[in-house]
């Protein structure tokens, strides 16, 4: 029963927040809505018995990515930009424009195709296993640790190199370059 309750709550949070990300014109609010959506997905992971993945999702996204996004929004002006955003559901006076219509049509078509594919017999070809109820409660922590350092150790090591590269690259890219900034200042003075 509580798995169902958690499932419903997480689903509602995920989907509603994702819609807010799409529709809200204030990008700061969109970031917070993304946070809600990510927390909802962590809840969905919990209903699937993936406790470590859920905690990692919270840890990385809440503690890292969303804060980075908020910083970026703040550093790039945030609310001043609102007026320039595309008004997808602006009903006055021309009922949207070509972009919004094409986006709507493409999205609806894709969604319809996916739903059609899901309800088609393709799903029944997957061998349906009975789910061990103990498996829901069991922790995945020990097994994940073993897998990461045995079967997937190469990907594990490569990801560490990737993170190092991303860290150094981001630091170098975002660092204000002395020569260009001084030239920008001189051009402003002129």
């Amino acid at each position: 029963m509580f798995h169902k309750l958690l499932f419903i709550m997480s689903t509602v949070l995920t989907v509603a927040s994702a819609l807010v990300v799409l529709l809200n014109k204030n990008i700061m609010h969109a970031c917070i809505a993304l946070l809600g959506s990510l927390i909802g997905i962590a809840g969905l992971y919990l209903t699937l018995g993936a406790d470590f993945v859920a905690a990692t999702q919270l840890m990385v996204y809440v503690g890292g990515v969303v804060i980075l996004m908020l910083f970026a929004v703040m550093l790039t002006g945030g609310q001043d930009f609102v007026s320039k955003t595309q008004k997808l559901f602006d009903l006055t006076p021309n009922m949207g424009n070509a972009t919004s219509y094409s986006v709507g049509i493409v999205s609806a078509a894709l969604f319809g195709m996916i739903i059609y594919g899901l309800t088609e017999s393709s799903l029944s070809s997957i061998p349906k296993k009975d789910i061990d109820p103990n498996l829901i409660e069991a922790s995945t922590l020990e097994r994940l640790g073993e897998l990461l350092l045995t079967d997937h150790v190469l990907a594990f090591e490569i990801s560490s190199v990737l993170l190092l590269g991303a860290l150094v690259g981001a630091a170098i890219i975002a660092r204000p370059d002395r020569s260009t900034s001084s030239s920008a200042n001189t051009s402003e003075e002129q």
Binding site: L35, A55, L58, G63, I67
Partner: peptide, 18 residues
């Protein structure tokens, strides 16, 4: 007593930063 106890604690407390 979660199996991922300390990790959960760290993950949730990062909400305070936001």
């Amino acid at each position: 007593n979660l199996n991922i106890g300390v990790f959960y604690l760290l993950a949730v407390s990062s909400l305070v930063g936001i």
